[in-house]
Design a binder for these strands. Structure first.
Lengths: 234, 234
DNA sequence: TAACGGGAAATAATCTGATCTTTGTTCCGG
DNA sequence: CCGGAACAAAGATCAGATTATTTCCCGTTA
């Protein structure tokens, strides 16, 4: 990291400690303690705390200090909060929440994409689905994952809804987390790959209902897979 | 607002100017210019800019200044960004995006609530639906809105998914925006109110499919209503 | 002429110390 | 026991200086 890392270092460190549970809700820090602990000047700790406050992780009051807030106050859609939760002991809970979210959003995105996707996006979608077929057969899980991520990202963007599009990064992290934590079978199921192709076809044809249904099936399949881990882990 | 307002003032002012389009993407400010324009000290403008950067509205680089970023970089799930967009000329676009989001999320939330709602939440849901009936008849739009907000908020919380629950504030703003900008009929439609009661019943009965279907119908109805404004406005 | 390299200036980043403001606490008088 | 006044702690704000990058410009050189 070339640029100024100081401020972000403190932000990351404190954020992880809070999200990870080391700093329980109700804990009070003082700016001075942050200064000395991370050996930075007040402006740096001040700005880090200010950003944490804007994320709902802490609240600072005069004469009291900086209080760690309970989960209910967190901005759970903030990408950093999501990332910290995925990296912490709360990974499974976060994946469950995100899965439920996806089960609502992605079918809608598919339906909208069927109505709004540009020819380029249709092409990219078809290409990504094709890549999934190829890498699914060859068993190259990383390449498969990459194609999967591209597929979902393009689809969300093609929805023409900037909020759905913003979920692209999150979905990418979910997919990556799934492959990297043994929640995926060694060979992607043929049905799952087939469903992706079906979504691409439906979007190309402008068939919103079919796109929604196929995407719904993808999510359902993924949910079932997570409920029954391939190697019985956890 | 009791506490320190200075920092938030600058943050709000700059945020609104950016989201509202007055400060177009690519515009560069300098910290000094912010200092003098709002007549605050360096630390105040610094922290405001830092938070704006954390929201993806600006990026600051040495020797260049503070650059306003394009929409694609914005954290569109940040509640403040949503609020600013709703208050700006982009209100209709934001309402459309949020509507599409709701059409995905709320049915899922209803289905989950049917499986997870506590007895207290069931009670609150039923009570809110009852209030909607009463105030819908009497024509007290504000009281109706309040009950509507409570209904959706409780339902989202009852989903047991903290990310869905976090959408409560956003949904509240959407509903409020609708009534306050003449996108609602003078008397709430009987069918809409009836659907809310049906959701409450389904959740009470633990019937996830029925809860999802009824909620879907609510959203569809709302979408249709927005497509055909009652008094032909817009 | 074009590529390369060395300043110089601009600007955010950081540090520092002082002062102001709010607010929880304590203590005193009634 | 209660109400209010004084005190103190901690963040909030201010002001200035210093540092570190980055960009731009210009001269040199191949």
């Amino acid at each position: 990291m070339a640029g100024s890392a100081l401020h972000d270092d403190v932000l990351e460190a404190l954020g992880r400690r809070i999200v990870g549970g080391e700093l329980a809700p109700g804990t009070v820090l003082t700016l001075d303690s942050v200064d000395s602990e991370y050996d930075v000047s007040r402006s740096v700790s001040r700005e880090a705390v200010r950003v944490l406050a804007s994320m709902g992780l802490v609240a600072s009051r005069r004469r009291v200090g900086v209080t760690v807030l309970p989960r209910t106050a967190w901005q759970v859609f903030d990408p950093r909060v999501i990332r910290w939760r995925l990296d912490s002991g709360d990974r499974l809970g976060q994946l469950r929440s995100l899965g439920e979210l996806r089960s609502g959003l992605e079918p809608v995105a598919a339906a909208l994409a069927a109505q709004r996707a540009t020819p380029e996006q249709c092409g990219a979608l078809t290409a990504a689905a094709g890549d999934m077929v190829v890498h699914g057969r060859s068993g190259d899980l990383e390449a498969f994952l990459a194609a999967d991520v591209v597929f979902h990202r393009v689809l969300l963007e093609a929805s023409g809804n900037e909020m759905l599009a913003a979920m692209g990064d999150v979905v990418a992290e979910v997919l990556a987390g799934r492959t990297h934590h043994d929640l995926m079978p060694a060979h992607p199921k043929h049905e799952a790959v087939d469903l992706h192709e079906r979504v691409a076809r439906a979007v190309r044809a402008g068939d919103a209902a079919a796109a929604r249904a196929a995407m719904q099936a993808i999510i359902d399949e993924a949910t079932d897979a997570m409920a029954d881990p391939p190697d019985g882990e956890e």
